[in-house]
Design a protein around this nucleic acid. Sequence first.
RNA 1: AGAGAGGUGUCCGAGUGGUUGAAGGAGCACGCCUGGAAAGUGUGUAUACUCCAAAAGGGUAUCGAGGGUUCGAAUCCCUUCCUCUCUGCCA
Length: 423
Amino acid sequence: MLLVQHIRDHYDQVLLGLKKRNQVHADTTLQQVLALDELRKSSQTQRDQLQAEANTISKEIGILMKEGKTAEATAVRDRSAELKTQIKELEEQHVQAEEELKALLYTLPNVPHAAVPAGKSAEDNEIVLSHGEIPSLPEGKLPHWDLIKKYDIIDFDLGVKIAGAGFPVYKGKGARLQRGLINFFLDQALASGYMEVQPPILVNEDSCYSTGQLPDKEGQMYYASEDKLYLIPTAEVPITNLYRDVLVNVSDLPIKNVGYTPCFRREAGSWGAHVRGLNRLHQFDKVEIVQITHPDHSYEALEQMSSYVQGLLQQLELPYRVLRLCGGDMGFTSAMTYDMEVYSAAQERWLEVSSVSNFETYQANRLKLRFKGEDKKSLLAHTLNGSALALPRIVASILENNQGPDGIRMPKVLHPYLGFDHI
RNA sequence: AGAGAGGUGUCCGAGUGGUUGAAGGAGCACGCCUGGAAAGUGUGUAUACUCCAAAAGGGUAUCGAGGGUUCGAAUCCCUUCCUCUCUGCCA
């Protein structure tokens, strides 16, 4: 959530940023925000003054009662009753202004960083770099949805029986590949200074608001209504929320956490020919890295996280490219996002396998995640996260890119994790 | 799921309607004492919003959360969340 103070102090910059996200009505909304904040403040000032008077009177009555001067005490009571009705009115005005302000702020996405290109869709994303050779596969190459059948390692039909479409069953070497990748990703993160956590995969409403899934994406999350819990769409939600309502010491920054979880997405209305096989699932596995940093160092951290993820892809011997997302394609809460895409050689297309974002104070403001600075003042921290990595499309690319006459070759780094080198 | 107990500041813990943001203790910070340390001793030790150009200094709110009673609530009432104990159930 944007800070009103920041909107007031950097109005033009905020407006420009929101325009980059194609928020056509940003000007009106921002004006409303400022007006509501003025109303909020003035009603609070008035209320506080009257409340102060009422408090004084109450104390006087207390003293009079103690001295036994009941007649005088009753006399001041009337004044107090008058104040009370006025206070109640102002209080209602104040609460209403606050709520309207909050509702309005919820509709505003984060302001993109200056380096974020303007643009409407994925077409306008900026390709930062490409790495690796695109493999040329022989005639008869198969897309992964055929390969998994040929080698009987992932079974979609079984998943349909147990749960439904988009819930695959991994079998034999397919299951071991999953487990091997998860362990490889976790070990790498640990070696990079991340602390491993195992969070719950069902979360409450507060958690969804704090990281920005609500209000906005309610239709995209599975919801257990009996207990009012959401299945997590990403480990970002529970891990970042570990630090909700937390005041950390500046010396503890940066905080680096990593966690493996399954992720659940309803993907309502996003099915079609281009999302066959592992390209889009309702349940998938992901290792997520989360950082909480000092505001001065969050963009360094973003670059670090980007190189870290690239390192994983290099070790897996996958050709990839890095995109800087344009304003129109970025997530609601992000200030800057890099997407990593891997080339899937039989489908002959790039697949997004990681998204690394800096949220600056947008989430921290909702989380009330602050740190105590050198001057003992508390300031909002910056939050970042990234997939490192999401499994299904990595698996798809490994299968497709490494297929050959003697089966599917596994990347060397995975051999110790798998116990086999070919499928 | 049923019965009972309870949720107070960094921590422990007192407090059943009146000048209580909250006794006391521990911890922590700074000072005194000391050759140095311990002990002793003194002072300080929350957060948010807000007023003020700013600082200084005010105001308001906060004793799990929300609402109510009252001139006045940590204290009384209601709702709700959470924790613990016992019983039940269960991987």
